[in-house]
Amino acid sequence: MIANAFDYTAPQSLDEALTLIGNGAKPLSGGMSLIPMMKLRLASPEHLVDLGRLKELSYIREQDGELHIGAAITYYELESSTLLLGKCPLIAETATHIGDIQVRNMGTLGGSVAHADPAADYPATLQALEAKIVLRSATGARTLSTKDFFLDTFTTALEPGEIVAEIIVPIEPGLTGTSYQKFRQPASGFAMVGIAARIRQQAGTLSLIRIGVTGLSGSSYRATNVEAALEGKQPTEENIRAASALVGDGVDASADLHASADYRQHLATIYTAKAIRAALSRSA
């Protein structure tokens, strides 16, 4: 399996990369989605610009009360970051659900976000965290919410010439509980359904609840109806079940040889409740 011929540049700086990408070159990060597609000749870019080795995109830092993660940070760097494990454990935990050791050594947060695979794990987590996605081009930068960024299957708000440069996630106050729960497709390991939950409690009621969903349909989303059904309520088993049943309401569930639309909806309900319970057990 040999890709079509292409030119390759390992740029010395982000500016050089952005200029080349502005001229039509395609970004390469971990290559864990792009290279398999190139080998199958589903993708045949003429010029690859390797962002994966750019130091300027490889950092995790705390700044102005938030966590800034460079696009080229790998899953292994996320899962092993003491800063993230301490201040935003959900983003570290999600990495452990992806692929295998070798894939996590190469695959990047920026690549996953840009690729927007409907069964990818990070989109659910970033939805629940209300992350901000920083896009850069040779001519400027803009910052989008996950809602404005993830549009559809493999479709994002990225314009030609733009890259995902940084992901910004909140520092979670000690009382927030989070969890990512995934039903793996047994052969590929991708999410049939993946649910990220983020919860805060106050005096026995839920003061904050955010639910991010992946795998169920063509794009990740925030299940605002589940959130609305639980916010201000007591997290009783009955309330959790009733709210979780709303997760796929009005959603055009995907069907394929692994799962029918009904079965995916069923999984989404079960895994939403699971994620909420797990997040609750971690929120003081």
Partner: peptide, 24 residues
């Protein structure tokens, strides 16, 4: 990229060498 038979270490990290270009 599924079987791992091609695994080698690159700068101390195990990777699947069938899913990486030599230029990388």
């Amino acid at each position: 990229s599924l079987c791992g038979a091609c695994t080698v270490e690159l700068n101390g990290k195990a990777i699947k060498s069938c899913s990486m270009f030599a230029v990388q």
